[in-house]
């Protein structure tokens, strides 16, 4: 029997901003139920990978710059709102909560897609169980939240859409280590409930042990791919990302 199609597949993706090409032949697979990490130095193009998946950065057209498939169907060329409605949710860099909206309204914004609307009350309960802090802050404007709370809110908002794939771009950026740990634990718990995750995370100490597989991106190219914990032991990663 043939292997089922991966949930997400980047096939030799070339992409960038106008004349500036950032990604060069990036191949990356995310299978159902996995946590896949994408690591690499600043400027390697990690965020561009996420933006390309979401349709915020176009693939190169001539010659055709590869393809991106979600559940076997091509999603490159779709507008961002069409991509997310197919079942992909994102926690973008810096959380990007809606600042002048309450915590509750931010979460409700996550449940726009028709298939998520019916499940809104149930999803809200789930999010408040995962992040009890958000339940306390329900009527507060999002701009009054701390950095950690904003990340929780952005993750909660993404979960409200009942996605099949969750993209996270540096969810622990700028947080103190104890908060980094609790965010990573939350991601791990979300994954255990069956949600597939693609994670960009600088704190490889936290992220690689929970990752089934991981890719190392350097200068827009995938240079290494391995099981997460194994990658943590590799000399290249130890030298480049842990400084040991």
């Amino acid at each position: 029997m043939p292997e089922p199609a991966p949930l997400l597949a980047l096939e030799a993706v070339d992409a960038g901003y106008g004349a500036l090409q950032v990604l060069w032949g990036v191949r990356l697979l995310v299978r159902h139920g996995e946590i896949v990490s994408l690591i690499g130095p600043n400027g390697a193009g990690k965020t561009t990978v996420i933006k390309a998946i979401l349709g915020l950065v176009p693939l190169r057209r001539r010659p055709a710059g590869g393809a991106i498939r979600f559940k076997g169907e091509r999603i490159d060329g779709l507008a961002p709102e069409q991509v997310v409605r197919r079942g992909i949710a994102v926690v973008p860099e810096g959380a990007r909560v809606f600042p002048e909206m309450t915590v509750l309204d931010n979460l409700r914004m996550g449940a726009l897609a028709p298939r998520a609307r019916g499940r809104e009350p149930q999803s809200l309960d789930d999010v408040f169980t995962l992040f009890p802090r958000l339940a306390e802050r329900r009527p507060q404007l999002a701009r009054t939240l701390s950095g950690g709370e904003r990340q929780m809110l952005a993750i909660g908002r993404a979960l409200m859409s009942c996605p099949e794939l969750l993209l996270l771009d540096e969810p622990s950026l700028g947080l103190q280590p104890s908060l980094v740990r609790s965010i990573i634990e939350a991601i791990s718990r979300i994954n255990e409930r069956g949600l597939t995750v693609l994670l960009i995370e600088q704190n490889v100490h936290f992220s690689l042990p929970i990752s089934r597989r991981a890719y190392v991106l350097e200068q827009g190219r995938v240079v290494l791919e391995d099981a997460g914990p194994a990658l943590l032991e590799s000399p290249h990663v130890r030298l480049s990302y842990l400084g040991v």
């Binding site: 915020l56 961002p80 709102e81 997310v84 973008p92 990007r96 809606f98 914004m109 726009l112 859409s161």
Partner: peptide, 8 residues
């Protein structure tokens, strides 16, 4: 941009 990313 974020509004588009939740499907607006």
């Amino acid at each position: 941009e974020m509004a588009r990313l939740v499907g607006v």
